[in-house]
């Protein structure tokens, strides 16, 4: 049994290790090891396309995770006091957000936003005061942040709600008995106890957005995120540079995720 488990861990981590190994390849060919070198890391970090894509990915991940954590936490707290059909409807929407394949979300968002923008843009042009160039709405960083925030908000709500329901209701009541205002109760009692869940939700949302390819593929317009860059490079052929980028992305996500998971699990145990 122990050996079996060991083999499964080997199965899970060998491919990741292989990518890392080949990223230190000195040769040009991606699938033949020819000595050890860190040059592909330098090459990747000097590549302006990679740095642009990285910047876009960071911006999108940070913005969408922030929006999702704030609005998701507020919604989870508000939902505690809502019962009946409205609650059931909201739960169904969260369920749909998590369950619908990413590819369908990407496509649906693309055609809906393009259609809506096509309707709005002529109005904007007509209503815009003479002289200035009217703004045109199009797919790009904004639509990508909005789409990622939608999905990750559902995740944050699920995570924060799980923590909320395990918090004893009496804690809040005790605080009210001691003449704390509802806002005071929230700030001094609920929020600190929720902090681990919110932080974990933020980290998960950030890594989801940072790693997401499929939604971004449809929704990013002409913008390139890091996964989109990696995808188009793979289509052109396998190079050690992709391995170097992949290893850095994996390394960063692994660290963030392990932190998120440990925070969540410690929060559960308390």
């Amino acid at each position: 049994m122990r050996i079996y488990s060991f083999c499964v861990y080997l199965f899970l981590y060998t491919p990741i290790a292989i990518i890392a190994l080949f990223s230190f390849n000195a040769g040009r060919h991606a699938s033949q090891l020819q000595g050890f070198s860190g040059k592909w890391y330098g090459r990747a970090l000097d590549n302006p396309f990679v740095m642009d894509a990285l910047e876009t990915s960071f911006l999108v991940a940070f913005a969408s995770a922030t929006i999702a954590s704030v609005l998701g936490t507020l919604a989870a707290v508000g939902l505690q006091g809502i019962r009946g059909p409205a609650r059931a409807l909201f739960d169904a929407v969260i369920y749909i957000a998590v369950m619908i394949p990413g590819i369908v979300i990407g496509i649906a968002t693309l055609i809906a936003l393009v259609t809506v923008f096509d309707q709005i843009n002529p109005w904007l042009a007509a209503l815009w005061p003479e002289g200035g160039a009217p703004p045109t709405l199009s797919m790009g960083v904004g639509s990508l942040i909005a789409a990622h925030a939608m999905f990750t908000m559902a995740l944050v709500i699920i995570i924060v709600r799980a923590r909320l329901s395990s918090l004893e209701r009496e804690l809040g009541e005790a605080s009210a008995d001691l003449y704390a205002t509802p806002f005071g109760t929230f700030r001094q009692v609920t929020l600190p106890l929720l902090a681990p869940a919110i932080l974990a939700g933020f980290l998960l949302s950030f890594t989801f957005s940072f790693d997401d390819f499929i939604i971004a593929f449809f929704v990013a317009g002409s913008e390139t995120t890091l996964p989109i860059y990696i995808f188009s490079s793979i289509r052109r052929g396998v190079t050690p540079e992709i391995n170097a980028i992949g290893t850095m992305v994996m390394g960063a996500s692994l660290v963030l995720l392990i932190i998120a998971q440990l925070i969540l699990r410690r929060g559960d145990r308390r």
């Binding site: 861990y9 990741i16 998960l204 990696i230 396998v238 992949g246 994996m250 692994l254 699990r265």
Partner: peptide, 21 residues
């Protein structure tokens, strides 16, 4: 945690690894 974590990392890069293997 070691089992769950790979799921949250890029499926793109993890599938790419299998092109090698």
């Amino acid at each position: 945690v070691l089992v769950i974590v790979p799921f949250w990392t890029s499926i793109l890069i993890r599938s790419y690894a299998w092109i090698y293997i």
